[in-house]
Computed example of a mutant assay.
Amino acid sequence: MDPIVEAALKKWPNVPDCYGWLALDARGDWYMRDERIQAAGPFPRVKGSRITHEKLRDFIHRNYAADAQGAWFFQNGPQRVYVQLEAAPWVWRLSENPAEPGAPQVHSHTGLAAGPVQACWLDEHDRFYVATPLGLGLVHSLDMGLALAPVETGRWQPETLRHAELLQRYGVIVEPQAA
């Protein structure tokens, strides 16, 4: 977390949480969802405005975390902005691993190294999920070709599990609500 965010939390500890205004889609893109967009329909059917400002995205990435209940948020200064998730809290990007061919490197949509793949699944929509020390994430659709090699060689052995069951197993809340 950024030091300026930590300082703001100390200065203003009682700022109310925000719900419904920020969302993460299955490709790792962030969306702002103002009141008009929220009224137009649920995420991801109505996405909102894609955040393209690089420094704002980087700020969100550095201050993105989960609470004890499994709801993900962006700590925006003293305010916790809860995130609606289309699929999972992480969107994995894969790249060739020169040190170990056939075992792609896995990074999050925020740029964090995910660590080794611990398990993988296909859900009822044929989406490919991977669990790492960072947690549960969806493999980006553009990187499915790189995921094929470790599956074909048996290094990654996907199981089938319904999306809702997968989220429950990893304690992920996709649509946080105020208490």
Rank of each mutant, 00 (worst) to 15 (best):
T132G: 08
V139T: 14
G115D: 07
A149L: 13
T132R: 01
T132I: 07
L148I: 12
L142K: 15
L146Y: 10
D126F: 12
A149D: 13
Y129N: 05
A119N: 08
G145C: 03
G137C: 11
L122G: 06
S141M: 13
V117E: 02
L142S: 15
R127W: 07
C120L: 00
L138V: 07
L142T: 15
L136Q: 09
D126W: 10
D126P: 00
G135T: 07
S141G: 14
T132C: 08
F128G: 08
A119T: 01
L142G: 15
L146P: 09
E124C: 09
R127F: 04
A131S: 14
A147V: 13
L122C: 04
A131L: 11
E124I: 03
F128A: 11
G137I: 09
Y129L: 11
D126L: 12
P116H: 07
G135F: 03
L148K: 14
A119I: 00
G115M: 05
A114H: 02
E124N: 11
V130F: 01
G145P: 04
A119R: 09
V117G: 00
M144S: 01
S141H: 15
Y129C: 08
D126H: 13
A119V: 01
D126K: 10
L122Y: 14
L122V: 08
H125C: 10
Y129T: 09
G145Y: 03
W121I: 03
H140R: 10
G145N: 14
W121Y: 14
L146V: 12
A149K: 14
G135M: 05
P133M: 03
P133H: 05
H140G: 05
D143V: 04
M144C: 06
A147Q: 10
Q118V: 07
G137F: 02
L136A: 11
